[in-house]
Nucleic acid binder design. Structure first.
Lengths: 253, 253
DNA sequence: CATGTCATTTGACCGAGATCAAAGCCCGGC
DNA sequence: GCCGGGCTTTGATCTCGGTCAAATGACATG
């Protein structure tokens, strides 16, 4: 029943052997055999980032790709006049970087303290060619990302501000519950990895609208705010209803 | 200078040999060696669809994946109350279907007359495991789709109605010009594959707003409407400007 | 404890785009 | 040529979310 910093799992771990790495089961290396893992181990390096630190800039060459070991990374695109849209939010075990291209078309910024397990892009590409397991896992992860980003298109194009915020909270609550293997009961507390401004960039809203929708859900007794960054889900059923998504989706995902 | 039905290239071709197939260079089979192509040829079959015909339904099992030979296919998601968002528009050589899962989370519908070069999903998956070339090309195409869908998230989340429509027209004009290998001059005529309603679903707008923005661009002399479905680009520079995208982007893509 | 900074909340107002409604237009069938 | 149905356009009005502005709160520093 305490705050749940889902984006900090594996903290402290994963400075050394892949075998004991906290994201081993879900990351791009998940399907690798012991010898393949050894090769990966030979070319990996860790790098840490502070909140707000830029990991890669849109259009600028980046020699690295990798896996997020802990922390949260945002992918976003900014228009010339400053309008910004977050196009992805990466959590531990998610892949970061753009193989087969010199640069990614989006900015990657550390939202929290972040540790990335990095590979030189060309080494990674070469390994993909050699290792069916690595390439296969990467393909599956990319397909899942594509599905998720299309799902987000529905949110951005058609959902109301209320539905957007509720959807976001549902996703965070599910992720928290999923990792902690708890049933999705009322009273779950979720720590928000993002500021109101970052949420507004993710949801295609303004900061004021996000804040107002928080207040409204609070007034209605659907959630409670322990602090600005810590939400208690008081009534998950109503939150789900507010999200505009039909099923509770426990069948899939 | 005549209408340009980009979505009908390869019409008539591709009922037979892969070697002479119109989408051979760009489709998922692009990197396949002659023997691999032979294997593909052994398991492929063609299927045609009428405009409006459903190719696959969200969440329902589909035994097939494949490549679009000609025509345009929409991917979309519908909410319980009927709100609908298009999450992808597939053109010839694009891949359709969801390998490694029994079903896709989106509806696929033929927008025009469509021919698909199909493979049984499990055969395709098996071939991916055997053929590095096939899997590699599929991975690259999926990564490109992911980039494109994130680009679309910026449009849905942050662009004005005017910018949305202009962006869409720029993409169509580029695609038309690219395939015809002509410079992007003023006076290019683009045939719209979508009705106003379908465009509104793609752009996250209403049909009325789309129509109004067409009228406005016309009034301003940026475009002309030969018919409701055929647009002449009179001033590409101003159209680009109206799209809210900085560069003319001819460097990339 | 006073002060400054930064994130968040709340209020007042406005406007882009949605909604509701009514023509207009295109085309195919009779 | 006339009729009918489906797109598309245009108009009038409303509303949700954006904009501008100010107050409140949370902390860290001197």
């Amino acid at each position: 029943m305490t705050a749940n910093p889902i984006f900090r799992i594996a903290e402290g771990a994963a400075t050394g052997r892949c075998a004991t790495c906290g994201i081993r089961e879900k990351a791009v290396c998940a399907y690798c055999s012991p010898p393949e893992l050894l090769r990966l181990e030979g070319i990996k390096s860790y790098k840490d980032y502070e909140p707000g630190e830029e990991i890669a800039a849109a259009g600028e060459e980046s020699a690295f790709v990798g896996s997020i070991v802990h922390g949260v990374v945002s992918l976003s695109k900014t228009m010339v006049d400053g309008r910004r849209q977050m196009v992805g939010l990466l959590f531990p075990s998610d892949f970061i970087g753009r193989p087969f291209r010199p640069s990614a078309p989006f900015d990657a910024v550390a939202v929290t303290n972040v540790r990335v397990c990095r590979f030189r892009r060309n080494r990674f590409e070469a390994l993909c060619a050699d290792s069916n397991n690595l390439e296969r896992r990467f393909l599956e992860m990319t397909l899942d990302e594509l599905d998720a980003s299309r799902e987000w298109m529905l949110l951005l194009g058609r959902k109301s501000a209320r539905e957007k915020l509720a959807s976001f909270l549902v996703i965070l609550a599910r992720r928290a519950a999923g990792i902690r293997e708890e049933p999705l009961d009322n009273g779950v507390t979720v720590e928000l990895p993002l500021t109101r401004e970052q949420m507004s960039e993710y949801l295609g809203l303004t900061i004021e609208t996000v804040s107002r929708q928080f207040s409204k859900l609070k007034r209605e007794g659907v959630i409670a705010l322990n602090s600005a960054r810590e939400v208690a889900i008081l009534d998950f059923a109503r939150l789900l209803d507010a999200s505009g998504d039909e099923s509770d989706g426990d069948a899939l995902y």
